[in-house]
Design a protein around this nucleic acid. Sequence first.
DNA 1: GATGAATGAGCATTCATTCAT
DNA 2: GATGAATGAATGCTCATTCAT
Lengths: 217, 217, 217, 217
Amino acid sequence: MRSSEGGSSGAGGGRTFTERARRAQIVGCAIELVNEVGFGQASVARIAQRAGVAKSVVLYHFANKEELVRAIVGDIFVTGATVMLPAMAAEETAAGKLAAYIRSNLAFINSHRPESFAILDIMTSFRTQEGLRLDEAASREARPTAEMANLDPVGIFELGQRTGEFRPLPAPMLAIALRTAIDGAVWQLSRDPDFDALAYGEELVTIFDLASRRQEP
Amino acid sequence: MRSSEGGSSGAGGGRTFTERARRAQIVGCAIELVNEVGFGQASVARIAQRAGVAKSVVLYHFANKEELVRAIVGDIFVTGATVMLPAMAAEETAAGKLAAYIRSNLAFINSHRPESFAILDIMTSFRTQEGLRLDEAASREARPTAEMANLDPVGIFELGQRTGEFRPLPAPMLAIALRTAIDGAVWQLSRDPDFDALAYGEELVTIFDLASRRQEP
Amino acid sequence: MRSSEGGSSGAGGGRTFTERARRAQIVGCAIELVNEVGFGQASVARIAQRAGVAKSVVLYHFANKEELVRAIVGDIFVTGATVMLPAMAAEETAAGKLAAYIRSNLAFINSHRPESFAILDIMTSFRTQEGLRLDEAASREARPTAEMANLDPVGIFELGQRTGEFRPLPAPMLAIALRTAIDGAVWQLSRDPDFDALAYGEELVTIFDLASRRQEP
Amino acid sequence: MRSSEGGSSGAGGGRTFTERARRAQIVGCAIELVNEVGFGQASVARIAQRAGVAKSVVLYHFANKEELVRAIVGDIFVTGATVMLPAMAAEETAAGKLAAYIRSNLAFINSHRPESFAILDIMTSFRTQEGLRLDEAASREARPTAEMANLDPVGIFELGQRTGEFRPLPAPMLAIALRTAIDGAVWQLSRDPDFDALAYGEELVTIFDLASRRQEP
DNA sequence: GATGAATGAGCATTCATTCAT
DNA sequence: GATGAATGAATGCTCATTCAT
């Protein structure tokens, strides 16, 4: 019997080597599959088939499909945060952090396309057994998935206002606009693999710089 | 036997009054349901149940589920275009059209929340039998769904550059950023019904005005 | 879409002829199967197979397995009550009703063996989704399944005491002893088809007559 | 490799202390679980979980689930016989043995409720791989499980007739009625924990005394 | 002694779809 | 126009069992 605990934190949390390897393999195959056929068509059976294991193996390692989905999302968020948080921390000004946020996010998207497509699909398609989307469920669970919280750019806009770098602006709204504009790269990339995501990132840096910085008289 | 033709164009295209009414009723119920439980859980059976008709009635009026989905999306796009296109046409400058595009789009989202939630869900979740998303399928079908095309803001940015109103900018990228930033309102609204979508619209007007207009020296 | 309502009362309650026929056929096959392999092995698939229909047909007519089980049990109880209640009503004395209860019950068991075996198996094996046995669930449902209540012999023992026919006795305990002693015929019959259930009934009449009637000094 | 032999006789038959302890622990947990969720829901996995061991440990100690079930039933029967047989042997008359049989059986039921519930559930629900109930399988196996045989009250009724204590009566039928009436206490107790099983036993003593003893003219 | 890993068969249930009426 | 009936494929999940370590 395996497939309990659930958490995505704590490097492997007591799992054996074999288990960690299998879990990683299954998560990887699931991401690829979601990518190719969409989350709606990514059944446990097809995931198992793609991983070359029996369907029951998947459910041996993940208590149910929801756990698998959470593992996928957790994995990707952690990977993303690992890239983005240091990049942001390296900057001191709000404008610097903002640009670092955008650039590191788009670099991640560009180099982790399957993961990015998968997470966008899962976030809109997947519902927990209680009918909630994953982010809604997460916010109801007290443990607000530190990674998700830290990846919300609202803090940057608030900082910029406190320091006077930015014009007076509604930080939460700019955060929403920025986050979804970034998602636009994922959307576009999944339709056009030749889309230049990094250039798009630079354009977003320009847009949000122009849109947020204090106007010189 | 009914349920052929399929197209969403032409006011009811030869359909009887009863038929048009039934189709509208079913489409309406489907939108409500997608809204409540997500597209993944919106089966033909549940849609029929909600409409108070037999499951087979739904498939009498729509050849298959894909046709129903196309009807839903077509319906909403037409409704949206009916509001947005005149608003844009009433403006002469690119900046005016841009503001009108954003404001009319957010007004539509704000007053047609179920439709907006549904379309966002369908666009990411639904795949045709060949495995394509609806917009991908539409662009492959030569008939590129006039409405969809007209609602792409890329033309506005191109216009603004031709007239010199806007700074030199990559129009397609700004179009992506704008479209997805607008979608951000739908996302947020579906999590927080008290979100002020119109104020968000005004902020987007500000952001994209700052971000696109020619800088005065 | 079928398979709603649920109740076993009201002769066919609005169902079409075809539906009533299919339901009856499926219930019949289920009884036979429970009889042969035990309730634990009586899966929906095997029931359908035995009925010569697709598995989904069973679940088209019964919302889920629990509904099917309830239909089976309800059916048998109604049939049993139809035989037993008039037999008891025809007697005036408590002793007469008691003998009629036992004889009609054993006559029913003897002539409806598969049904009797099935109901005994279901009553001990089956649990509702909440983990309750069927009789426990029924008593929690306010609607205490009139048939079940009327088939409880406790009233007879109470009557006999009020009329003075019977010795002072704890009616509920005698009712339990009687009901389970009658079940003994089902148990025995399922092991030895040659067991003389009617003679056993006569012996039970003797036992419970001797055990309950007022002792002459 | 362990888990062969199978028999429930012989005090632990060559097993080590650890092994006997583990088997006893698993059997105990299985009884508790059957008690709580019913035999149908008592999977090997859940039994192992409750015992705090790996699923494979259960199947290391018992060749398969059937062996575990046999061990459970054997255990309980032995325990029951240990109480009941001496109680009966202490009496000389058939009436005395009869009363002792009933009283000791109900005392056992009252003080070993989980065991009693479990055995009733298993006896009706469980089928061997050949589709037989456990008692049917036992009688086909020549080795008729001494305990089971000795716990059949038919001998008492036969004795009572030979000695003239009892009226002419069909001993096997009274045995069936008595055994199942006793089971009635288990049934009732599992629905109502406050049921007075010992008083019920006294009532059964009365009933079967009245029902079997030779009538004085 | 004990267990982690794997597996295939089976489970109840849901699905979009077909078709005769 | 509408529907009841039926269906096969697929869904997520549980099961007892095997086996190498």
